[in-house]
Write a protein that binds this DNA or RNA. Structure first.
Lengths: 210, 210
DNA sequence: ACCTGAACACCGTTCAAGT
DNA sequence: ACCTGAACACCGTTCAAGT
């Protein structure tokens, strides 16, 4: 919705919103500073009054999208169900912005804020993982889901398109999320199913299995 | 190693080799058609005689790198050990070319050739996975390792740099690979440890757990 | 067959100038 | 305070021309 005649000033929020619209409609490669300005009906340099540069804009965009995911909180139904909710919500939110996942996965801490990073580690500690395993588990889950989002970016505008053997995007991500959960349980809570300390924590700094 | 005076013709292999050198040294963002030509001591348009366009060059580059990984073959020591070897080899090969993983993860079939795609699915079928689970498992393993490679791209030139709590890149990838293996075993071979058909195969096309 | 040189349509961004 | 306009240093790529 570009406005042909502007009465009042631009705002930073409008710039970010225009950027989100462009990524949603054309993918991250369609996000150019010139396109954002055109979308807002101003000259290419006008948006620079509200942001530092393109990296800054992408940071703001990522913050907005990540904030729209459900937070990772340890619910009454256990860490498995809580983690599943978080990962599926993250996948759904980011899948709407093709290319953003592949961009974030290369950023420090995958584009999450330090607070959300701490929350993620705390989540696994509260679930009974050792401090080391909590960090490794959080990184593992986050890496997988961002990888999956990146793979899906190509088909973002046709998520229901069947692929190999009629499998669709949600089959892949659901299989992956369940595998992540089972893998974490097997590695960090090998005997029972709740609260056991992981067998990895002690030898982790020397490397696993070798 | 740019050559200042050229006696003989360029070759396609030289162009690909120069591109690989550039990605290795400057990352994928350092790979420009003009830089490749400069590296070879020719004019910007000279390389276009040997390749179609930049996408074509990237395809050739990816083929070369992927061919340098150990192939995925079911060894005597079981699918777990075979998969571990393959994933670690892929990680090591691609980690040398920062940004290439994040590029490939967005390509159809993650940049692998159709033959390697079939080999991967066959691998899991031979290991006792149902046809559907074999596809899902192969996609899951590939997605994770490419995600991990993308995350590591940023620190490609200092892989031994300690991160949170002294954990290094190899701790993360080894934890992830073990989790992937345990997750696949738990989901697809829930009871014993060899050859059982997965419990997911029948309901997979209707979605898991729901 | 192999390569050059000029040119085009894009980028992000700087900088001075307008209101 | 907010925005314009011209310009710069990059891209990938086309196209005609040289040897």
């Amino acid at each position: 919705m570009p406005r042909s005649s502007r009465s009042r000033s631009l705002t930073r929020e409008e710039v970010v919103a225009a950027a989100l619209r462009l990524i949603h409609e054309r993918g991250l490669s369609g996000l150019t500073m010139r396109a954002v300005s055109a979308e807002l009906g101003v000259t290419p340099m006008a948006t620079y009054y509200y942001i530092e540069d393109k990296d800054d804009l992408l940071r703001l965009v990522a913050e907005e999208v990540i904030a729209s995911c459900v937070p990772l909180r340890l619910g009454e139904d256990g860490w498995e169900a809580s983690l599943r909710r978080y990962l599926m919500s993250t996948w759904q939110s980011l899948a709407r912005y093709p290319g953003l996942g592949a961009y974030l996965i290369e950023q420090p801490m995958l584009g999450v804020t330090p607070e959300r990073m701490r929350d993620g580690i705390r989540f696994f500690e509260d679930a009974g993982f050792s401090p080391t395993n909590a960090r490794l588990a959080w990184s593992f889950a986050l890496t997988y889901i961002h990888g999956r989002i990146s793979v899906d970016a190509r088909l973002a505008h046709q998520p229901e398109a069947p692929r190999l053997d009629g499998l669709r995007a949600h089959h892949y991500v659901e299989f992956g999320v369940e595998s992540v959960i089972h893998g974490l349980r097997a590695i960090c809570q090998p005997e029972d199913g709740a609260g056991a300390r992981g067998s990895w924590s002690e030898e982790a700094s020397a490397g696993p299995r070798r």
